[in-house]
Write a protein that binds this DNA or RNA. Structure first.
Lengths: 257, 257
DNA sequence: TCAAAAGTGTTCTAACTACACCCATGG
DNA sequence: CCATGGGTGTAGTTAGAACACTTTTGA
């Protein structure tokens, strides 16, 4: 007799196709309403939020696994993605996948053991354009939503630690690489870009110095258009000069923030 | 009948105690004769060099695995160690552990399959004091030696890529963290420290500017002693002020190189 | 006494900081 | 017509680059 699959997944297949003990977790950053947001999932089985994650196929790289997970959760391909750490505490395991919690939720499986095993997880962080994301929960989750970075409370397992490390890594990266292209819409104003930087860095920057510094990198182009409909002088719109932007990604920037 | 163990390892035990598919590889840097060195192993089974590596125990973190490997290869505990990347190309596998190569070398085992499986490897880099290391080959290797970073030719599998990535990561780290404490003996002269920086960065630095910049961090103490026995003015000896050094590790430095 | 390499100081420039003034826009 | 916030400019400060002279040492 065929196995019950109340949550829409063939776990026997999963087990046969994925590496044991290894998963990926993604910290997906977006920027909206002058706030840094992160994509989170709420478990079907326990009352906790977690990062989007998944298993690694037997013939996949971890990057491919993360890309696949992100495609599923956001609908986006071609995502800016960076591996930043592997979390390997032997005690880390997903309580949302623990036999007792899944049974409590009425899930029937024969191979709880595989899901309940020890997992080491490779942390990735992704930068995406908020408005392009269509958040989709996975089979273990009831919802998938953006949360403001400051509103995030406790997360499942060590996911809070993973989130913090991702933030720290992104802040460091900001020192020597331009980011923003992946987080902002095609056109944006200088104050918007500044807000993004301030949000990531967690401190205010001088408006004029910021503008001068950013422009000195020569990675963005001012457009003749302006942002209209504001009760003050209309700011110019800019967009990244992709060629120079990518060159700067390779060469690195010089400044400190 | 008990299994033949011509290379001194019980592989059944290894398999039962280690995670499948996962290994660690360490890029161990040392500094000697004004040269950056890296610790390499020469395989018993094929004519290739590789990085020190090992498997991950079922209840170990990857950090613990790397620490264990380094203890075995160098004799040192308390090593400065940094995880920097996970290498997960599904095609990567160790030719020195491939059945045909081990059989050719006369090794008799029943579970070649385990050794020949796909491995994902977590890359670590370590900074050690050259003179304190007592290089010890592992069971798969005939020798363990220091090689000048510029003399390293081809390495086994993707180890060359791992080495390059380690170097790149260390150079980046040099931008915002002091290193040197782990690579130099307790007392050293300013020109020696400068040579180390020049070697890591791969370019020459101005003697006077270097001294001023390093001293401005206030992480080292000038000793009343000088290095004698040189046919020129005797340079002062310095040592790191551990308290301030560690604080700087946490806070980060400001300068660019 | 000389070559080699260390100690120390100055000048110039570029980058960052901290401000001030004017301008456009919607309410 | 005014509050809000954007566009631009300038002076002061600090960090880095380039460079010169003096000192100590063993051979």
């Amino acid at each position: 007799m065929s196995k019950t699959k109340p949550i829409g997944v063939n776990f026997e297949e999963l087990e046969s196709q994925c590496l044991p003990h290894l998963s990926v977790d993604c910290v997906v950053f977006g920027f909206h309403d002058n706030q840094l947001k992160v994509l989170l999932l709420k478990s079907k089985f326990i009352d906790e939020w977690s990062l989007p994650g998944g298993f690694v196929g037997k013939t996949e790289t971890v990057e491919e696994a993360a890309t696949r997970v992100l495609k599923e959760r956001t609908g986006l391909g071609e995502i800016f993605l960076n591996q930043f750490h592997i979390f390997s505490d032997p005690k880390r395991s997903n309580p949302g996948l623990k036999p007792e919690n899944m049974k409590k939720a009425g899930v029937k499986l024969t191979n709880y053991e595989w899901l309940g095993q020890r997992f080491l997880s490779v942390g990735f962080y992704a930068l995406v354009e908020f408005s392009k994301v269509d958040p989709q929960p996975d089979v273990f989750s009831q919802t998938c939503e953006w949360k403001g970075i400051d509103e995030v409370e406790t997360l499942m397992m060590d996911h809070r630690q993973i989130l913090d490390k991702a933030l720290e890594t992104m802040r460091l990266q900001l020192r020597y690489q331009p980011i923003g292209y992946n987080l902002l819409p095609e056109k944006y104003t200088m104050p918007e870009l500044q807000k993004l930087y301030e949000t990531i860095l967690g401190r205010e920057l001088d408006r004029r110095n910021f503008q001068r510094k950013i422009l000195s990198y020569k990675i963005l182009k001012r457009l003749p258009e302006r942002r209209l409909g504001v009760a003050h002088k209309a700011p110019y719109l800019y967009r990244f000069d992709l060629e120079k932007y990518n060159q700067a990604l390779l060469d690195g920037l010089s400044g400190d923030w």
